[in-house]
Design a protein around this nucleic acid. Sequence first.
DNA 1: GAGCTCATGTAAGAAGTTACATGATTTG
DNA 2: CAAATCATGTAACTTCTTACATGAGCTC
Lengths: 195, 195
Amino acid sequence: MSLRNALLAMLTSQPMTGYDVYKNFQTSVGYVWHAPDSQIYPELRRMEQDGLISGETVPWGKRGTKKRYSITDAGVESFQEWLNTPPEYQRERDPVRLRAAYLEWAEPAASADFFRAHIEYHSARIADWEEMIRTLRDHSNPTLARRIEGKSDEEAERITAYKVFAYEGMIARAEVEIAWAEKGLELVERLGGQS
Amino acid sequence: MSLRNALLAMLTSQPMTGYDVYKNFQTSVGYVWHAPDSQIYPELRRMEQDGLISGETVPWGKRGTKKRYSITDAGVESFQEWLNTPPEYQRERDPVRLRAAYLEWAEPAASADFFRAHIEYHSARIADWEEMIRTLRDHSNPTLARRIEGKSDEEAERITAYKVFAYEGMIARAEVEIAWAEKGLELVERLGGQS
DNA sequence: GAGCTCATGTAAGAAGTTACATGATTTG
DNA sequence: CAAATCATGTAACTTCTTACATGAGCTC
């Protein structure tokens, strides 16, 4: 159900078309939740059927049209209900740790590449999230700007702070991944792999 | 494909029945990878068809039988190929961070409960993994004992070290989650939620 | 012999991935 | 006018979850 709530979260800032949502999933919100277009369009239709959002066909260019969805009161209620419900944790499923546990079967060079790739991946994510935090802090983020429009300074600060805090959590975790992978590189150098 | 590789990883230590695998997924290996029995039995059958493992029907009690699977040479090769291949990262999909980013819509009490649940969950996982590391370090872990049987001290140390290292990675990440959630509690206290 | 463990499934459905497909509009 | 962007899908498949189902063996 998180996809549905990610969509509701987005639509609390402003009405959007499926394509707008798709774009957001590739950048901003996509840094915490991603979904492909093949998942987005059908889900939006289902949500409209369930009354959580309402779609309005608006003209686009001369002949084209597009469908813009707005969150309904029932949608806001459903979103808040989700936020107020205790989280459910899924069982662990960590392919990276699974691999690491069996590196005695791997070639040392491949193991080193594996850790280097891990460091690179998480470094790139940190750069994304730091940039995101920057645009949140200086309010140059258009979605945030729309969101805090007409709100008091206190409210604007609160809205911003939670978003920054979420991305800070992502960064902190990625930093631990990098430190772990660096330890992994040392380990591989010291122990090697298959004999 | 990680389920398949988790199964191969397990079977590198010793032949096992589907039920043995299921048990392991509830404890030891289950702390990095989990799968329900409804996924395990069909996957083992598919792996046998693909020649990665071979099943042997052995008697169990007076009339009962069970099927014990052993990894084949092709299975070891496939497992090593996976270990030697660069990792693929899936797009982010983090329900906890998604929620955190929108806590201005939640009730402060529910937000605090959310962070407290997060701390509790990760504290429990740390306890599991620390216990796991203990049984690996003192070689009282039966699966590890089987795995290092007849191996040199150096090899035994290497095998153990990678497993300990993997669990240490899980612990490090969980500790960051706890620290983040503690910051979250402060934030909620300072900022509150919906007005 | 009751209750737990060992053993092995099926079935329905939700969630997510990958590939294929099409057409209008805007921009350089 | 070509290329990029906007717009919206379908189809097949894999993965995972949840629930239902059954029966033998072992232990107290």
